[in-house]
Simulated scan of single mutants.
Amino acid sequence: MNQPSPQRPPHPGFYALVGPNAAGKTHLLRSLMGPGAAFVPAGADAKFAGDTVASHLRAANTAKPLAPIDFPDARIKDLSVGERRLLTITVALAAEEPLLLLDEPFDGIDTTTRKQVRQQLIDYVAEDPERTIVMASHRPEDFVGLATHVIQVFGRETHSYGLSLDDARLLYPTVTGPTAEIEELAAQYPVVDKATLGPTTRATFSAPIPESATALPVGYPDDAMLIDLLAQSPANLQTGKALQ
Rank of each mutant, 00 (worst) to 15 (best):
L163W: 08
P140I: 00
P35S: 13
L28Q: 03
Y220K: 02
A60G: 06
T132L: 05
N2A: 07
L28N: 06
A231T: 01
F205M: 04
L66P: 09
M33E: 15
G34T: 12
P105K: 14
H56L: 10
A207C: 02
A168M: 10
I209K: 03
D142C: 02
V192L: 00
D142S: 02
S212M: 06
E157F: 05
I151D: 02
S5H: 10
L171D: 14
D228P: 00
G13S: 07
D73T: 14
L121Q: 02
F106M: 15
A207Y: 02
A67S: 08
P9W: 05
H149I: 07
G177W: 10
T113D: 07
A195K: 11
G219E: 08
I89G: 10
S31Q: 15
P72H: 10
R75W: 04
E104S: 09
V91N: 05
T158F: 05
N21M: 10
L229I: 03
T179A: 14
D223E: 12
V18E: 06
E96A: 10
V18F: 04
R131D: 06
L102P: 00
L163G: 00
T62H: 12
H149C: 11
E130R: 08
T148G: 14
H56I: 06
R85K: 15
Q120G: 01
Q3A: 08
T88H: 15
T111W: 00
V81Y: 13
F39S: 09
T62R: 15
G36S: 06
T88G: 13
K64M: 13
R169A: 04
L237D: 15
K47H: 10
I209H: 08
L216C: 01
I182E: 07
Y172H: 14
R139I: 03
E183M: 12
I182H: 03
E211V: 06
P4S: 13
A224F: 00
A46E: 11
P105V: 11
M33H: 05
L17E: 13
L28S: 05
F14V: 04
V153T: 01
I69R: 06
I227F: 07
I89D: 13
F71Y: 15
V40W: 05
D78W: 04
P221F: 06
M33G: 02
F154M: 08
A16E: 09
K194N: 02
T88L: 15
L66F: 12
R30P: 00
P199Q: 09
R84P: 02
G162K: 09
Q119F: 09
V53D: 01
D78L: 09
I89T: 07
H56G: 04
A242R: 15
I182Q: 05
E130G: 11
A63N: 12
A187R: 15
P199E: 13
A195G: 01
L32Q: 11
I151T: 13
D128C: 12
L87I: 13
L100I: 04
S31W: 01
